[in-house]
Design a protein around this nucleic acid. Structure first.
Lengths: 226, 226
DNA sequence: TTTGACATTTTGGGGCGTCAAAAGTTAGGT
DNA sequence: ACCTAACTTTTGACGCCCCAAAATGTCAAA
């Protein structure tokens, strides 16, 4: 288990992890877009990772993470989020800049520095966006579906304004959709229609597009089908 | 003026800067040693830099920095020392670890993060070793000769225990050779012999080897030859 | 002045990551 | 069934950085 992943390898793993959320497999085109490289480059990256058994690649069909690959991806995400936290908490960057900048120097950070940084930051549990920082040796992360994945009757707590577009975040704020706020889905119109929900006692309607920018934690409602 | 220096380029510039302190030119062999690469690799690096007019290279004779190269080297040193300071002040690393670790991730640090880090650290003036952090656009640094460069009669202030070996630092400490302490050279024995000096009223004798590990600031003694 | 020890540069090769463009595959429409 | 548009993979090339080893240059001792 050679553990020397290059910058590209780690970025590719992160992208595959994100792209395979709720989907069968990530296609190389999407991967190339996510990484900002040409399709050929994405294919080459995938082949490198397949060689090391970090992904499984079915030609022309797509790619999925192996358990080892998933572990590596989560480590990479953990590092990314710790560095984001550093940029936000210690250097005062707003969270969208933190995201952008973290990617550029997280790669060569020695593991021991990451560990110390984590402690110095007081063991944060989320990145500045509000996404969880996974434990070092955990093989999956708490699920945070977009609000639009919920159905009528579901109750959840807003975890994060996940958008990278400041205007959207501001808009969400005016609706009261801030981290920690509980929402209940009243209605979900068909054919990708808008969502009607209750936020702090008030009824709100938001579009599918916006609802996909909000990530939530499902409130535990052991809803027994009885 | 393409400003895209690679990791190797910057490390090479730093090494050339240090190696040309008080010498005509740095030879490739010394450079290779300093960088931990083979001689051929050092030659190649020098050729790359010469191509960009950052160094001047006289074949088989050695290499010197151009003004632009000196500027770039100082920027690299500035960054290194700021990162060291970060590791020491924010993460609690001892200074010898800070030195070791800084080199591994300083390269991809975006300039703007370096700038913010500098401010967040409260604009430090020295690295944890005590060496000065040069101003961003300065083309040389205050000189800090090793103690052994002084002659009998010279007076100086200890600026830094420059060694990377903890035992030596501890030894210096027992002699009272701490940063800020004033020393006067009483005698310098010939043929690389030991140095006799006064430290805080007491007379001390230290070997050439040790005296080369201590860096000092010369006390200004406009010694007119009259 | 010659020669040999030593240092430097060149050559040839390899790994990685990237691109542009050619070749191959899939799937949908007719 | 076929054809074609869209996508994926392969190919060939380049830049970077490194090494080992061969070729070249320097300098001083004999």
């Amino acid at each position: 288990m050679e553990n020397n992943l290059s910058k590209s390898d780690r970025d590719t793993l992160k992208a595959v992890y994100r792209l395979t959320k709720g989907v069968d497999a990530a296609h190389t085109g999407a991967l190339a877009d996510a990484l900002g490289v040409t399709p050929g480059t994405a294919t080459a990256a995938v082949k490198r990772l397949a060689e090391r058994d970090l992904v499984e690649h079915e030609r022309y069909r797509g790619v999925v993470l192996t358990p080892a690959g998933r572990q590596a991806a989560i480590s990479a995400i953990r590092r990314h989020r710790i560095v984001e936290r550093f940029l936000a908490d210690m250097l005062g960057y707003p969270w969208n800049d933190a995201d952008r900048l973290a990617g550029s120097f997280e790669h060569d950070l020695p593991q021991e520095v990451e560990d110390r940084l984590f402690v110095a930051l007081d063991r944060p549990t989320t990145c500045p966006h509000g996404f969880p920082i996974p434990e070092p040796d955990v093989s999956d992360m708490p699920e945070m579906p977009p609000l639009y994945a919920l159905e009528a009757g579901d109750v959840a707590v807003v975890a994060v304004p996940g958008s990278t577009e400041p205007e959207i975040v501001e808009f969400l704020d005016t609706l009261g959709l801030r981290p920690g706020v509980e929402v209940e889905v009243k209605e979900k119109h068909p054919f990708d229609g808008p969502l009607v929900l209750t936020v702090a006692g008030k009824e709100r309607t938001i579009s599918q597009k916006v609802a996909n920018h909000i990530f939530v934690t499902r409130s535990d409602q052991q809803e027994r089908t009885a």
